[in-house]
């Protein structure tokens, strides 16, 4: 499996070197994007949804066919309050319908794991939520970060160093977590949750965008990519979601493999066109993020619902 993946990456690299980037639009015919269309669609995403921005990434990894300051798109610190895997279990327990309906009731995206509108605090089955509030009753459950968990003995116990610097002077103007947990309404509790940096790169081989996930655990430490799979719809975990080198950032990151992106996007475009909506290429990433939402249903980055996808012929 890993070997075939490696062989494929090598093949893909060769093809990318010898073929020029797509410059002619095949957006409606194949659901793919040229490099310049990716930049147009990215500019539109950044202007309509300003939590997204363009970034340059590592200079050594810069792709010459993209503008130096528009190498990839990123939105940071996106909360993920619940594990996708537990949402799906609930769904199945409830005899789960797996079509995602939006307001217009046009369930054109078959998906697993639409988040239920429940208060996360009520769910006892979600592991991350147990360490939710910095609570005065009892110690906080230690949150195991993968990085570090395995070799805990190697890490010196920092507590044994004590506090020789006497930093513990109580400062009356620093908000102490226990203070507001005890006295303020529930909405003001500090919620401990996983967060994600979600990035979108251009995949020259598949001529589609590609989405990457960089996770942080409840204590803001890097989340090992394997644990990211808990936040991926189980249809996709271990299948279309793989862990690979990020094209613009150091380290391994989870990514939705783009091999089917073109076909899925083509399907979405066809459905829209059959309804008399003419999809516009600068809206490609809005559509793409709808599709991505079916893969990562509990990461709360998507608020593109409000935008028109294309010009309607009605």
């Amino acid at each position: 499996m890993v070997l075939t993946q490696k062989l494929h990456e090598t093949f893909k690299g060769t093809v990318e070197r010898i073929t020029g980037p797509r410059t002619v639009s095949a957006f409606k015919e194949k659901g793919v994007l040229s490099v310049s269309e990716f930049v147009i669609a990215g500019d539109n995403l950044v202007s309509k949804c300003p939590t997204w921005s363009w970034e340059a990434g590592e200079p050594k990894k810069r792709k010459p066919y993209l503008p130096p300051d528009k190498q990839f798109l990123v939105t940071r610190n996106v909360p993920c309050l619940r594990r996708a895997i537990s949402v799906e279990e609930e769904y199945e327990a409830a005899g789960g319908e797996v079509l995602l309906d939006n307001d217009e009731n046009d369930g054109w995206l078959a998906t697993h794991g639409k988040p239920k509108e429940t208060q996360p605090n009520e769910e006892e089955t979600i592991p991350s939520m147990e360490s939710l509030a910095i609570n005065s009753e009892g110690p906080i459950r230690s949150i195991s970060t993968y990085f570090g968990g395995a070799e805990e003995e190697d890490i010196p116990d920092m507590a044994s160093y004590g506090d020789p610097d006497n930093l513990l002077d109580v400062d009356p103007a620093t908000l102490q977590p226990t203070y507001f947990v005890a006295q303020e309404p529930e909405e003001d509790n500090i919620l401990r949750t996983r967060t994600y940096d979600v990035s979108i790169t251009y995949d020259k081989y598949y001529q589609t965008p590609r989405v990457w996930l960089t996770g942080y655990d409840e204590s803001r430490m890097p989340l090992q990519p394997e644990l990211v799979l808990e936040d991926v719809s189980q249809d996709h975990a271990h299948k279309t979601v793989t862990i690979e080198d990020h094209p613009h950032l150091p380290g391994k990151h989870a990514s939705v493999h783009p091999c089917r992106h073109g076909a899925v996007m083509k399907k979405i475009i066809d459905v829209l066109m059959s309804r008399g909506v003419e999809p516009e290429v600068d809206k490609y990433l809005f559509l793409f993020l709808k599709f991505v939402a079916s893969v990562i249903p509990t990461i709360e980055y998507d608020y593109t619902m409000d935008f028109d996808i294309g010009s309607s012929s009605h």
């Binding site: 910095i134 110690p139 906080i140 230690s142 949150i143 970060t145 993968y146 990085f147 570090g148 395995a150 070799e151 190697d154 890490i155 920092m158 507590a159 160093y161 506090d163 930093l167 513990l168 977590p177 409840e218 204590s219 803001r220 430490m221 890097p222 090992q224 380290g251």
Partner: peptide
């Protein structure tokens, strides 16, 4: 992370 005034440690061996 546990509210103590001490440093954090991250292991990136993996």
């Amino acid at each position: 992370a546990s509210g103590k005034l001490t440093c954090r440690t991250v292991n990136l061996k993996e």
